[in-house]
């Protein structure tokens, strides 16, 4: 058992887990109750688990809890607090992007990460998987960002 202090959505959170190698994804979901971040593949392919770590998109299925210590983690639950995040959320609603919605937390986090890297409009191209095929609406929505 080991205890870690994380900074998630601007708040300090302490978790005690059996193994410091546990991916941040499962610490967020199962230990902190932040289930907006999704599990899709567990092997860094689908992007459903994307969160921002110090402003950069990271696949939380591949970042251990011990690596996350000392960094600022932003999840979809905290997105509205972020200027770019709130804009992206509003664009997603305006363009009615989500279908099943399961990939959309990751899509939004990747999009916001790209915005923070200075991308706008058609240069925002999240490389995440959406089985529902919401890509056309994502393109419309990101065009406005």
């Amino acid at each position: 058992m080991a205890t870690y202090t994380l900074n998630v959505n601007g708040q300090s959170q302490t978790v005690t887990v059996a193994n410091g190698d546990m991916p941040l994804l499962w610490v967020l979901r199962d230990h902190l109750g932040l289930t907006g971040t999704k599990y899709g593949c567990g092997i860094e392919v689908c992007g459903a688990c994307t969160v921002l770590v110090n402003g950069q998109p990271e696949k939380s299925c591949d970042m251990s809890v011990k690596e996350a210590v000392g960094r600022k983690i932003l999840t979809v639950e905290g997105l509205a607090q972020d200027v770019d995040g709130a804009k992206a959320q509003a664009a997603w609603v305006a363009h009615q992007v989500p279908q099943c919605g399961f990939c959309q937390s990751g899509m939004l986090m990747s999009t916001v990460g790209e915005m923070k890297a200075g991308n706008h409009g058609s240069s925002i191209r999240p490389n995440n998987l959406c089985v529902c095929g919401t890509y056309a609406r994502i393109k419309e929505a990101t065009q406005t960002l």
């Binding site: 907006g36 979809v76 997105l79 609603v93 009615q96 989500p98 919605g101």
Partner: peptide, 23 residues
């Protein structure tokens, strides 16, 4: 009419509850 979907806002802020999210 293309009414805005009732489930869309909850699918942009992490509050939508999928099976996997049940507590």
């Amino acid at each position: 009419k293309s009414m805005p979907r009732l489930d869309v806002p909850s699918k942009t802020d992490g509050s939508a509850v999928f099976g996997m999210d049940v507590k």
